[in-house]
Computed example of a mutant assay.
Amino acid sequence: MTPSLVQIRARRAAFRQLHASGCFVLPNPWDMGSARWLAGLGFKALASTSSGHAWSQGQADGASSLQAVLAHLRELVAATDLPVNADFEQGFSPDPEGVARHVRLAIDTGVAGLSIEDATGQPQTPLWSLEQAVQRLRAARAAIDASGEDVLLIGRAENFFIGHPDLEDTITRLRAYAEAGADCLYAPGLTQAQHISAVVQAVAPKPVNLLVGQAGNWTVAQLAALGVRRISLGGALARAAWAGFDQAARLLAEQGSFAGLAQALPGQQLNAFFAQAQACRQAVSDSKSG
């Protein structure tokens, strides 16, 4: 069911309030089913994952077209009543004008926030220059402002994520993105407490998103104590799902063993959950139209 503009605006307001209310976890579904399951577990907001969605379509991360991503965002927005943050990669354009045009299309899907990366995807020049990156963020900011919608803009510094762990340049970029209009700052790839704290302090009072992509010693409470305001998982949940699938299928293919099915959720449990979720959504829809 496509949400109304009133519903979308309520979600956007709730999403902004989450950023002002302390640390929260922003898990990343890759389809309608995983989105509804996460909503059923009580999370307050969701974020798309470019990698998780691409893998579900038999593609490598970064291979999805703009139109495919927009369709996916509409699907996630319609899947639950939660705000959705869009992993909007580099804006799907080499120039600021294209970024602005595509951000406007993303806003129309109903998302409550979207991120713009400063990675180029080109091995020879993996990052946009600071000047270029700022121009692209400003273009995204202008598109959001012109829409009149309260959509959060997240500025991403990809230094650590692409294998160039330069903390000073990361902070310089994040500060510039904040000045360019980013509401939230994000440097995926940070893993050390001193680096996380340095980023949080450098862009305060604006909120910082931290990517947790693997198991470790962190807890949500510990990251909150460092000043992190939101925690996303990127493609980690999708990778965990693929790991279970791969283990079960590989045991069957290589050993003729069904042992990998031992941890499978019962079909009755899945059917009951999705039937109940659908019934609840239908009841809400009927009450609003009645």
Rank of each mutant, 00 (worst) to 15 (best):
M1I: 07
L5A: 11
Q7H: 01
R9L: 03
A10S: 07
R11Y: 00
F15E: 02
L18G: 07
L18M: 12
H19Y: 14
S21G: 11
F24S: 07
F24H: 12
V25P: 03
L26I: 08
W30P: 02
G33S: 08
S34Y: 02
A35F: 12
A39D: 03
A39Y: 00
G40S: 03
F43I: 15
L46Q: 04
A47S: 12
S48G: 14
T49F: 02
S51P: 04
H53S: 01
H53C: 01
A54Y: 11
A54D: 01
Q57Y: 05
Q59A: 11
D61C: 05
S64H: 01
A71C: 02
L73F: 15
R74Y: 07
A79G: 02
D81G: 00
N85M: 07
N85R: 00
A86Q: 03
G91C: 08
P94R: 11
P94Q: 04
D95P: 05
V99P: 06
R101F: 02
I107V: 13
G110Q: 09
A112K: 14
S115G: 05
I116M: 12
E117D: 10
D118E: 02
A119M: 12
A119H: 10
G121C: 08
G121E: 11
Q124S: 13
T125H: 10
T125A: 08
P126D: 10
P126V: 13
S129N: 01
Q135P: 00
L137N: 06
R138C: 04
A140H: 10
A140E: 02
R141E: 02
A143R: 09
A143K: 07
D145C: 06
S147K: 05
S147R: 07
L153K: 04
G155N: 03
G155E: 11
A157V: 07
N159M: 14
F161P: 00
G163T: 08
P165E: 11
D166R: 13
L167A: 08
E168W: 00
T170S: 06
R173C: 06
A176S: 14
Y177Q: 00
Y177F: 15
Y177R: 01
A178M: 09
E179N: 05
A180H: 04
G181I: 09
G181V: 14
A182G: 03
C184Q: 07
L185H: 07
L185A: 05
Y186V: 05
L190K: 09
H195Y: 02
S197H: 14
S197N: 12
A202C: 04
V203R: 03
V203E: 12
P205G: 11
K206N: 08
P207N: 09
V212H: 06
A215M: 01
A215S: 03
G216A: 09
W218E: 02
A221F: 03
L223Y: 01
L226A: 06
G227T: 08
G227C: 08
V228D: 03
L233Q: 01
G234F: 06
A241T: 09
F245N: 12
L251D: 15
A253R: 15
E254I: 04
Q255V: 04
G256F: 01
F258D: 12
A259R: 14
A259K: 14
G260F: 11
A264Y: 10
G267A: 13
G267V: 13
Q268E: 13
F273E: 03
Q276H: 11
A277V: 00
A277C: 01
A279M: 10
R281S: 11
K288C: 15
S289H: 12
